[in-house]
Nucleic acid binder design. Structure first.
Length: 273
DNA sequence: CGAGTTTGACCCGCGC
DNA sequence: GCGCGGGTCAAACTCG
């Protein structure tokens, strides 16, 4: 259902930072020609100095990207370390649904032993001032309870799927204790119906400032499987990484200038058909 | 008026 | 046995 590829793939960091398009053999004479034509003037030296400066910057940027890639690898390693040392159930299972046998993935109710419902988690970025605890996921939900839990100052809301009366799916929604702009939605069970067409259209995109962040290894996996990370850790790691890269790149004016120059030159040399 | 939300009470398992 | 805490119930309330 969710894409778990985020952590499985290294983002491509092989950014081509050369100014202008890659030089093909037939472009070298063009550069020579350009130089010759400019030789009439007194700007050749200045242009060469500028080119040297740009290559220096390119070199620096390449090192920066390499550093970031290394940091990414370190963080990624730490992520998987956390995944491997915290495989046991951390979240409390409802007492009424206490597991009888962890291996058999069953829990006991007053009606007997039934299969453990699949649980998945999803993180949603929201406006920190938004206390509605609404996650637009394409299904219709009816709230049936709200509680303040011990380990989190934010209330936890309980929802049941109201689209189909027989649908067994439940959802718990709570703001992250560390980050009030992050909602954690925990789904229990599987829908036995399609999404409502109305919500299909408005799913995710119409929520004010909300962005669903399918939690990579947690979300695709189920909590009964090995990747049961501390829910606070994973989004923090992801966010840290993305913010680090974005900050480093956007704060470096020479990088943005080089990108702009490269794009400009590329567009000049290969105009859209 | 019906559907959905709020909220205090209640249930039940766990740990001490 | 008792208190704690998470989950659920259901009456009261709100809103369209």
């Amino acid at each position: 259902m969710m894409d778990s590829s985020w952590t499985n793939q290294s983002p491509s960091l092989s950014l081509n930072l050369s100014v202008g398009p890659p030089r093909s053999p037939d472009q070298v004479p063009r550069i020579a020609l350009l130089k010759r034509s400019l030789a009439c003037g007194t700007q050749v030296g200045a242009i060469e100095a500028k080119l040297n400066q740009i290559s220096e910057e390119n070199k620096r940027l390449a090192e920066m990207v390499s550093d970031m890639h290394m940091n990414y690898s370190v963080l990624r390693g730490r992520l998987f370390d956390l995944a491997s040392i915290a495989p046991q159930e951390k979240g409390s299972v409802s007492p009424k649904r206490k597991r009888v046998d962890g291996a058999s993935c069953k829990y006991q109710t007053k009606h007997g032993e039934v299969p453990m419902p699949k649980t998945s988690k999803m993180y949603v970025r929201i406006d920190p001032t938004d206390s509605s605890l609404v996650v637009k996921d394409g299904y219709q939900w009816r709230k049936y309870g709200q509680k303040v839990t011990r380990d989190n100052p934010f209330p936890r809301a309980y929802f049941r799927c109201s689209f189909a009366p027989s649908c067994p799916v439940k959802k718990k929604v709570q703001k992250s204790a560390e980050d009030g702009s992050l909602l954690l939605a925990t789904y229990e069970g599987e829908h036995n119906h399609e999404r409502s067409s109305r919500d299909k259209v408005h799913s995710v995109s119409d929520h004010s400032a909300a962005a669903v962040l399918p939690c990579p290894s947690i979300d695709a996996e189920h909590t009964s499987q090995p990747y049961d990370l501390d829910e606070a850790e994973l989004p923090k790691l992801q966010r840290l990484l993305v913010e680090q890269m974005a900050t480093a790149l956007t704060n470096d004016r020479s990088f943005t200038a080089a990108i702009a120059t490269a794009i400009y030159e590329r567009m000049l040399r290969s105009p859209p058909a």
